[in-house]
Design a protein around this nucleic acid. Structure first.
Length: 418
RNA sequence: GUGGGUGUAGCUCAGUGGUAGAGCACUGGAUUGUGGCUCCGGACGUCGCGGGUUCAAUUCCCGUCAUUCACCCCA
């Protein structure tokens, strides 16, 4: 029989690796709570039109990466390729702008894009992100970037580069686009095949092409920051000044352009420089999308958001010591004491400790070995102890042994765990 | 999607045209109430899968799948 396996580009996350995921997600939720963001949990499947309208028809995601299928009711559905569109849909659907002026949501979950898998790039991948509706910035823009950098630092990811840019608002973008196409057209036959195709579909994307010939041409291209209108310029200046005041390092990258069409004004990307990351080093991307809510049929509502790739974050995070699966491992001196061991475990767990035991009836030695691997403390249950109603608690790191009554054990264990 | 590399034990990897090895991990013991270190023993592989060449293929060839690197894209 053919072996069943995961779909290409989709991975099982199992213990002990899943423990690192939990730590990461817990840290993210803590940060979000501190900043007043509440969790939004939209469905993974959405109407295809949502993504086409918000992300943009000419983007790679919509053109060739979505998992789109027709369900039995003949509706076109799509596995979400990102989180911003779903949040915007929910924000509109539940008329949230009518109940509060400013809304702060975060989300964590899997996203789906049918790309060629590589290290740090999978077809099902996890993102943690946030959206903030109703505040035009620039202060929340800077605050969001600073929040992400602080979060990364807490995870031990310090070696990062924060790139910021402004795409201006609608009119700015249109004027710049015109100037850019005018500049690029004479070079059309020198551009890479990809960029030639993009020249009219999505010319901004030519700017961050990695092809050497494109980069050379992009060097001389007009600078979007010089096309910003007065209000856009003031907005961007204040984002930068606030970041500077916060002491958050960043570089202005006028050629930073992201692959989703909905961005306006503030745009940012955070790249890691850790060796594990390889070419997929974009840890976080985000920006302002003041036009999206209106385009989806709502009232004009400014918004800004970001998303981080959790697989990449995990690659960038430093290795951490394995602290052991449980607090205490309980050992039976002889197989006939296993019933007693189960009882001891039950009582310790009731006090809130995490406890495990090897109940297969193996030798004391083999149980000790497992204890050593799985917990900092071991409890040895022998005939003598049962008779006297006590427990022997052994600290496996310094070999010291302590005696406690069954009732007094949890307190002593907590003390030993520090 | 394009081009290249790599698939041998759970992991990291040697190796050979005559059907396989190391280290780590796992496991039993040395030690009749105690783990880690050391020593002795044990289990573990359809050599990714399919086809071809050959008396014989894990080894050579082709295909395929997986993975990885670059491009691409992006988180």
């Amino acid at each position: 029989m053919k072996k069943l396996r995961t779909v290409k580009g989709m991975n099982d996350i199992l213990p002990p690796e899943s423990a690192r995921w939990h730590r990461l997600e817990r840290a993210f939720r803590t940060t979000m709570r501190r900043h007043g963001f509440g969790e939004a949990r939209p469905p993974i499947v959405e109407p295809t039109a949502l993504f086409v309208r918000s992300i943009g028809e000419a983007t790679d995601i919509v053109e060739k990466e979505m998992y789109t299928f027709t369900d039995r009711g003949e509706k076109s559905l799509t596995l979400r390729p990102e989180g911003t569109a779903s949040c915007a849909r929910a924000y509109l659907q539940h008329n949230v702008q009518a109940i509060e002026p400013v809304t702060k949501w975060f989300y964590v979950g899997p996203m789906y894009r049918r790309e060629r898998p590589a290290k740090g790039r999978y077809r099902q991948f996890y993102q943690a992100g946030a959206e903030l509706y109703g505040d035009p910035g620039p202060y929340v823009d800077a605050e969001m970037i600073d929040m992400i950098v602080s979060f990364l630092r807490e995870l031990g990811v310090e070696d990062v580069e924060v790139m910021v840019n402004s795409l201006g608002s609608g009119e700015t973008r249109a004027r710049f686009r015109e100037a850019l196409v005018a500049y690029l057209e004479p070079f059309a036959d020198q551009l890479s095949a990809d960029s030639q195709r993009r020249l009219h579909v999505n010319p901004l994307r030519v700017l961050d092409s990695k092809a050497p010939q494109d980069q050379e041409i992009a060097e001389g291209a007009p600078n979007i920051l010089e096309y910003l209108g007065d209000e856009d310029r003031e907005h961007f200046d204040e984002v930068r000044a606030t970041l500077t005041a916060l002491g958050t390092p960043f570089v202005v990258s006028p050629r930073l352009v992201r692959g989703l069409d909905y961005y306006t004004r503030t745009l940012f990307e955070i790249r890691g420089r850790g060796g594990e990351l390889g070419a997929q080093n974009a840890l976080c991307g985000g920006g302002r999308y003041d036009g999206m809510i209106e385009e989806l049929g709502g009232k004009k509502t400014p918004a800004i958001g970001f998303a981080m790739g959790l697989e990449r974050l995990l690659l960038a995070m430093p290795e951490e010591e394995d602290a052991g699966r449980v607090d205490v491992f309980v050992i039976a001196r002889s197989p006939s004491l296993r019933r007693e061991v189960v009882s001891v475990c039950r009582d310790l767990r009731a006090s809130g400790l995490s406890v495990d035991a090897d109940l297969r009836g193996g030798s004391l030695k083999s149980q000790m070995r497992r204890a050593n691997k799985n917990a900092p403390l071991a409890i040895i249950v022998g005939e003598d102890e049962v008779e006297r109603g006590v427990l022997q608690i052994k600290n496996l790191s310094d070999s010291s042994q302590h005696e406690a009554t069954r009732a007094g054990a949890p307190a002593l264990i907590r003390e030993l765990l520090g």
